[in-house]
Write a protein that binds this DNA or RNA. Structure first.
Length: 258
DNA sequence: ATGGCTGAGCTACTCAGA
């Protein structure tokens, strides 16, 4: 089964690119972030025509997450954490795979910039609540798959110029420690597990020719509990959609699991 | 390079992203 995470930066502005991607990559489940639309304006029909059911937690203008799936999802949950600003940033659901009941958790972590503002405090608070609730969830289910736009650069290798980001909300040690806290609950950063020294990115800024110069960062991740590591077939960052016309600034990360 | 793009809402311009 192929599960993909992709921050699409507006599902409506990106619909053609997304449909082309699905045709080429043939995923079973898409975890989308930053859909930037309310539930009622979501392009359900476009996905239904090609065999996908949409589970949407939208928001007007900003944020918003969705899961697009060929297989039926159970126990869809939009309240994984209590968000103090009521922003739509998490949608979770269950699938069954080889007798394992897997909880998929699709997240869009707050950006947190600029630091020394309420936005940064919101990011820290959001991550704290998230980690706490992951910990609780682990008591009832050892099979967690957390994927999405974490807005965290895990290590120096994960950005083209770390110095520029060590005081940024994406690269500050305090934030990177939150990522390590999650890992320490018994999860693996699957891309890094499978690629010990490879320097690849999932995001490139729109400006200053960042894509052409490969000034990117790896901020979209798949974290799986240790219990699921044996099920992994492969993980891949698919850079093709970022090279297209009218791209999202993020590119899909693809997990194959058996 | 604290933004030189891009998108939403709206219909001139601000807010947000990372």
């Amino acid at each position: 089964m192929k599960i993909v995470s992709w921050n699409v930066n507006s599902v409506r502005a990106r619909i053609d690119n997304i449909l082309i991607y699905i045709k080429q990559a043939n995923p079973d489940i898409l975890l989308l972030q930053e859909i930037k639309t309310q539930d009622e304006s979501f392009p359900y029909d476009e996905f239904e025509k090609i065999g996908f059911k949409s589970y949407v937690y939208g928001q007007k203008s900003y944020n918003g997450v969705a899961i697009i799936s060929k297989i039926e999802l159970k126990n869809v949950n939009k309240d994984f954490i209590k968000d103090k600003f009521n922003q739509s940033r998490i949608i979770a659901a269950e699938i069954e795979l080889r007798k394992k009941r897997i909880e998929l958790i699709n997240i869009y972590v707050p950006n947190g910039n600029p630091i020394n503002t309420e936005k940064y405090e919101y990011k820290k608070d959001w991550l704290k609540k998230f980690i706490s609730n992951v910990k609780k969830k682990l008591l009832s289910n050892p099979n967690l798959l957390i994927a999405g736009d974490f807005n965290i650069i895990p290590e120096e290798i994960d950005v083209y110029d770390f110095k520029r980001y060590e005081s940024d909300a994406l690269g500050k040690l305090e934030i990177r420690k939150k990522f390590r806290e999650l890992i320490n609950l018994g999860l693996k950063d699957i891309y890094r597990l499978k690629n010990k020294t490879k320097q690849e990115y999932t995001f490139w800024d729109y400006f200053a020719g960042s894509w052409q110069k490969n000034y990117g960062m790896r901020i979209d991740h798949f974290l799986l509990t240790n219990n699921l590591v044996e099920n992994i077939v492969s993980i891949n960052i698919n850079k093709n959609p970022r090279s297209k016309k009218k791209p999202s600034d993020h590119t899909p990360i693809e997990l194959e699991i058996n």
